[in-house]
């Protein structure tokens, strides 16, 4: 009953009947046949209802797409997959960044120092058979490593 009356009132408004400017008043008049309270309170109630309908109209379009987003399982799977792919890509990028940081190549200062450190001839091979802390080592097997040979005595 109320809905019907409201719809009529709204339609009246939509087609542009300007003889009654106040929509709340028009609703109140149309509903006056069965109003249980005083006219003023009733008009307020109708206005409040109208405002709520407006508010609902504003909120609904925002919530609806969110609900439809959660829609199908395959949509969700696709999203999860996309996120996983992105995470994997980022991890790979980080790993390669780390590798670059580990082997950055000489800095300008190091290049200057290296230029000063002229090769003084091939290091003679180690000729010892008795070793501590290690199997016997040969320099020939250590190419690619930087080696520090220190002659020392514990005494």
């Amino acid at each position: 009953m109320i809905v019907k009356t409201l719809t009529k009132a709204l339609t009246d408004n939509a087609v542009g009947r300007r003889d009654r400017p106040d929509l709340g008043h028009r609703c109140a008049v149309r509903l006056s046949c069965w109003r249980p309270w005083g006219g003023k309170r009733y008009r307020l109630a109708v206005l409040a209802l109208f405002c709520m309908l407006l508010l609902a109209g504003c909120v609904m379009p925002q919530t609806m797409p969110a609900q439809s987003d959660q829609g199908t399982q395959s949509d969700q799977d696709a999203k999860v997959e996309a996120i996983q792919t992105r995470v994997a890509e980022e991890r790979a990028q980080q790993a390669s960044d780390r590798e670059e940081a580990m082997a950055p190549g000489p800095t300008a200062e190091q290049l200057e120092l290296l230029a000063k450190l002229r090769p003084q001839g091939e290091a003679p091979e180690l000729l010892n058979e008795v070793w501590l802390n290690s199997e016997p080592l040969k320099l020939a097997d250590l190419r690619g490593n930087v080696v520090l040979v220190e002659f020392w005595t514990y005494g």
């Binding site: 002229r118 001839g121 290091a123 520090l148 002659f151 020392w152």
Partner: peptide, 26 residues
């Protein structure tokens, strides 16, 4: 043996050898 092959004379002495096996700094 190794002392002689390096022709070393001092303690301590450090030979810094590069990746190609060349002595670069003593």
């Amino acid at each position: 043996k190794t002392w002689r092959s390096y022709n070393n004379r001092y303690w301590p002495a450090m030979y810094f050898i590069d990746k190609a096996g060349q002595i670069r700094y003593l």
